[in-house]
């Protein structure tokens, strides 16, 4: 573009933006600034101590929890229920999902039932489960199992439906056995969707265990929060919430680790 015939002007760059750069220091800075605001807000009286105690008090509550051994007690109880319920729900879900994905007869029989149970908020089943399985561990583990089972079934057979048909045809054209096609093509192709569903079910499991423990439990993070709430001990309440956040982050990190190991063919 030139204003006069023989004068060249440089074409200005207009392709920038819409890109993410890694700014590793930004998020810790924001975190620390928020903490400082909270701290000074509390010490200077902008924030009422009744509404929000100082961060140091939350830290002390956390310390007490650790020293008295209650941390181990509550986190241990919750983790046990979580791991058992989630693992069973995921394994059974994948098996049923595969059966629905692979066999038309199973699909015709089970898919409508799954669709009918899936939208029920599982916490509504807790009273029923307490009657069926008692007030103890079994009702809670079953609640988590149930809560993770249905999303897993749906994600699994959805993933199987989406497997590239041309890859299945490839297997058939080379006379691969049904079992080989299922294991080496269908299973591996649906693995990414199954793994990303695990992130969702891990979050569902944490929601359900806390809800169950809030309603009926002596031990567990939910029970701890419930106690802190009824005693108006907001510092302890917040400590419990922070533990929950950490549990979610760790679960997410573990699944990310599994993804990087099992799906290394995906990322360059």
């Amino acid at each position: 573009m030139s204003d006069k015939k023989n004068n060249y002007t440089t074409i200005s760059f207009r392709g920038g933006g819409f890109q993410f750069k890694n700014n590793y220091w930004i998020s810790p800075t924001v975190f620390i600034v928020l903490l400082l605001l909270w701290h000074f807000g509390s010490t200077l009286g902008f924030i009422s101590n009744l509404v929000l105690p100082k961060p140091t008090e939350v830290l002390i509550a956390f310390h007490d929890l650790y020293v008295t051994g209650d941390l181990y007690l509550h986190v241990g109880a919750s983790l046990k229920r979580l791991i058992l319920g989630w693992t069973l729900g995921t394994i059974i879900g994948i098996i049923i999902g595969f059966a629905i994905g692979l066999f038309a007869l199973v699909r015709a029989g089970l898919a409508p039932i799954v669709a009918a149970i899936f939208p029920i908020p599982k916490i509504a089943l807790l009273p029923l489960f307490i009657i069926w399985f008692g007030i103890g561990e079994l009702s809670k583990i079953n609640l988590i199992l149930f809560g993770t089972l249905f999303p897993t079934i749906i994600a699994t057979y959805g993933a199987i439906d989406n497997v590239d048909r041309s890859l299945i045809r490839l297997g058939q054209s080379f006379n691969l056995s049904w079992f080989s096609i299922t294991r080496k093509i269908v299973f591996t192709a649906s693995l990414p969707a199954i793994l990303s569903n695990m992130r969702i079910t891990a979050a569902i499991a944490i929601i359900l265990i806390v809800a169950a423990e809030l309603i009926a439990a002596e031990k567990g993070i939910g029970a701890y929060i419930q106690m802190a709430g009824s005693l108006f001990a907001i510092d302890r309440l917040l400590a419990g919430i922070i533990i929950l956040s950490c549990m979610g982050l760790i679960a997410n990190w573990l699944i990310g680790l599994t993804e990087r190991k099992l799906l290394k063919w995906r990322n360059l």
């Binding site: 041309s166 490839l170 054209s173 080379f174 006379n175 093509i185 591996t188 063919w265």
Partner: peptide
């Protein structure tokens, strides 16, 4: 001969995980 009639596909049909 392990597979008498054998295809070569337009879209290659390679398994991305192998």
């Amino acid at each position: 001969c392990l597979n008498p009639l054998t295809f070569i596909f337009q879209d290659f049909s390679l398994l991305p995980w192998r």
